[in-house]
Design a protein around this nucleic acid. Structure first.
Ligand SMILES: [Zn+2]
Ligand SMILES: [Zn+2]
Ligand SMILES: [Zn+2]
Ligand SMILES: [Zn+2]
Lengths: 161, 161
DNA sequence: CATCTCTTGTTATGTTATTACATTTCTATT
DNA sequence: AATAGAAATGTAATAACATAACAAGAGATG
């Protein structure tokens, strides 16, 4: 339950701060360059537990004085995804901040079709089932996307977020 | 093993014929209009166990005398997906013929990054695991996408398809 | 036949993503 | 500190994917 912050009231300021701090720490450890655009892009994604399109992010970045062309956003987002600070949701052509930074994780995304919130939950059992299927057919999985569309608890209860 | 035809030599003519026959039968049963464009679109997808972009399909359709504008392809593909004759692979922005027509199924897709073949495997266990995860967070799953990228057995063995 | 619905086709436009290249910033080495 | 190489940023241009809106045709229903 603590696993799906998107669907419940929570200390989101802490949530955001922790993610940012984590990213900073990892960057220091691994010698990554957590530059201003990249940092700002992550902050933008962290504002809500939703997924933002690259162009949405771009708009905000350029409003903040960064470049105004698509590669500016795509590159920053690519960096975040590459290092596990964000995830790409293919179903939405969008990106979302990682909600479980630090844990090595195989995330599953639960997308509410009525309020657009996106929850990330650890999905080891799902991954296990998938790898088993893959093993049957001799396939080696290197990356995967697990995305479910449906209804979040708030919307199911009649009080969309 | 029989489940991942894309990765093994098989009677693909039969494979294709069966899928087409199945679509025809379902259309008859359900009173759907399996029109020439729709049929041709399915044939095109059935040519290989790969995923084709809408514009690839469009190109072939228009070469065959059908309309040359995007909606022609998108509509035919939408019809096929809607009725379970094809699937959309979000990761690739592409479509592939259903490899297990008839079975009510929750498919997982295994995409080989070296030869581009796409295998579809039944993924009920994966869906079950996913639903369980969803239940934890109070989410109701209505649809899901499970897409894995990796290496198919042929490519792993050094003989790309 | 009249009518209604579904399907097809076209034009136009919107949205998402990448390529290519110039410039700047950082890092490492001298 | 100077400098060479690598990484990051910025821009312009374009490619790739997708939908909206509307007119015309084909099929079903009375
Ligand atoms: Zn939060
Ligand atoms: Zn995550
Ligand atoms: Zn086949
Ligand atoms: Zn299928």
């Amino acid at each position: 339950m603590a696993e799906a912050k998107a669907f419940h009231a929570h200390d989101h300021t802490g949530c955001r701060g922790a993610a940012l701090a984590h990213a900073e720490a990892v960057a220091r450890d691994k010698g990554l360059r957590f530059t201003p655009v990249r940092r700002r892009a992550l902050e933008i994604l962290l504002e809500e537990h939703r997924a933002l399109g690259a162009y949405d992010v771009l708009e905000r970045l350029s409003a903040d004085g960064f470049g105004a062309q698509p590669p500016v956003a795509y590159r920053a987002l690519e960096f975040l995804v590459e290092h596990g600070f964000a995830h790409r949701i293919r179903r939405l052509n969008a990106f979302t901040a990682c909600a479980h930074p630090g844990d090595a994780h195989a995330p599953a995304f639960f997308i509410c079709e009525s309020c657009d919130s996106v929850a990330e939950a650890p999905a080891e059992p799902v991954l296990t089932a998938l790898r088993k299927e893959a093993a049957h057919i001799g396939f080696t999985v290197s990356r995967m996307n697990i995305e479910a569309v449906g209804t979040c608890p708030a919307c199911a209860a009649g009080s969309p977020a």
